[in-house]
Nucleic acid binder design. Sequence first.
DNA 1: TTGAAAGCGCTAACAA
DNA 2: TTGTTAGCGCTTTCAA
Lengths: 351, 351
Amino acid sequence: MPATLKDIAKKVGLSVTTVSRALNDYPDVNPETKERIRQVAREMDYHPHVIAQKLQKKRTDTIGFIIPTAGPRFSDPFFIELLTGIGNETAHQEFDLLVSTRAPGDQEMEAYRRIVHGNRVDGIVLTRTRHGDQRISCLIDSDFPFVAFGPCDLPYDFPYVDVDGREGMSLVTQHLVDLGHRRLAYITAPLELMFATYRLEGHREALARNGIPIDDSLILTGDLTERAGYEAAKQLLARRDPPTAIVACNDLMALGAMSAALERGMAIGEDISVTGFDDIPLAAHSHPPLTTVQQPIYEIGKRICHMLIKILKGEDLTERQVILEPRLVMRKSSGRSPLSLLQKEPYSESI
Amino acid sequence: MPATLKDIAKKVGLSVTTVSRALNDYPDVNPETKERIRQVAREMDYHPHVIAQKLQKKRTDTIGFIIPTAGPRFSDPFFIELLTGIGNETAHQEFDLLVSTRAPGDQEMEAYRRIVHGNRVDGIVLTRTRHGDQRISCLIDSDFPFVAFGPCDLPYDFPYVDVDGREGMSLVTQHLVDLGHRRLAYITAPLELMFATYRLEGHREALARNGIPIDDSLILTGDLTERAGYEAAKQLLARRDPPTAIVACNDLMALGAMSAALERGMAIGEDISVTGFDDIPLAAHSHPPLTTVQQPIYEIGKRICHMLIKILKGEDLTERQVILEPRLVMRKSSGRSPLSLLQKEPYSESI
DNA sequence: TTGAAAGCGCTAACAA
DNA sequence: TTGTTAGCGCTTTCAA
């Protein structure tokens, strides 16, 4: 049985209160008494019972994070990096982290309720915000502290961090247009996801800005996995009028798209350009390396967590909504359009 | 303020005890009383205070999982899949999951102590067991329940699940030998990791079995990231006597190795064969698809968690050590050795 | 069928 | 400087 304050009190012949105060370094304890108590505590290998502390303090010093895992083989590296950011900041601030893995849907809402109502955690981190996100309205209704990765179209003001996806997609798309591409396909994530909408908007804006008509048949939807990117690209490349560039909504789908193109014997960055979004470590090590938009995922995780803990401590946030600028990372998977009138090299054939 | 048993008791004019019993469906409560209490509880949106329950029950119904994250950009998809398995089983059994992210080392041990001593969790899941694993001796000394992914060379008997890595590596290596390879390089993980040792042993055994001398200069070490695989392969391929096959200790390093080979303009599966271990989803979508050894990661996560909860409930384990058979997944990244005397096709040139 | 009382381990207001 | 008392919200004897 682990030692309790009572055990120590008995041993040193003092009250539980004094022992508690000594161990918590209160100033109104005789220094010698304090030292003696601490000595005994060490000898008895005492560790405070955190559950009892939590009950008394009415605070759990724990934050919750529910990972929207789609299916058993879910393995988006994005989430590990985000989790690492959240986890490290959590530990740094001496908080604990409660994690749930639930696919979006009923069970997910149940997990939220379980966490919110059970006083298990003091606050929650939310990711992949959705249009009319039920989770957000539920949390706001219960007046439960949270910070989200991404905004929402509900008429609430809540704290979040985001990367400007519209701008990001606009940047890559412009980059491709500058390389002479006029026929760009786009693989989006399900549009219920806020970020998917923004990114698609950025893409469309860039096309419009350059006077390129939007062909809806070139916009396909995938579930953010490499498999989905592969399938979508396969379909696109089998067309009689295939695109010269494929813009994917995330890196995993871009990698899938690349494999579909390679399978057809195409040279990526030449016959076809492919771009992603996220800049996961694999993006730099695909072949060819993937042109993408960088999100500082780890830092975002830390930042979200930092904001949340500030809220929990009752401190004011300097910024309630943080929007980070994305950065275009040009690599070899994007190149001049094969249909471009611009010449690649002085001696290359033009059409 | 959330409603408490006391609030309900006051409202219905009964004692807290009776309310508690009614809500916990004890048989010795008047059915009508019970119904009335439940009705009121619903109206007041009552939810039990789990912290108080935990304190009283002296059980947290929570398990802990410390992810050994190496660095901020840590993003091995392997861990998300494992986490999903653990998380889903945890939820299924109505347990909570506490996660820590710590790089191996001092902070990691501190995280273990924090969790063990603070009564935060009832048991722990351990991954990536190491030689003389401090974490294991610490947990055993404290008599703290845990289940590991992988065995340990300490003289303790503890429950774990593992995939036979020796057999797995033996299978891929044999596969390569059968394809005519005689010069095989190996990229290992740091050998302090138990699985790294086993896998390397399997590789060596297969070579020995086939009378192929072991060339230690062909064995390099990497930190399991794609970057490490890339660097190692780059070095191997720059040799005057490059290998015809590269066996990597995990898929991520194999993917990195592939990119190094592609960068040199080599045709993978022809000029050079590359194999991995894990079978992460990306392995099927690399180009060419990666020959690897499958580990049912998600199921292992579920199984570990299932065993742990069984232990916590005081039930007997039918098997304390579970060793799963690996499965070789042959894909296109492995092909006949270019130096092979065997003919690839009837009409191909032999050397 | 119900209630009173005790206690899980801790903290904190108040008194001495 | 120390101790007394109360209480966090819940469960569980034991007695009525």
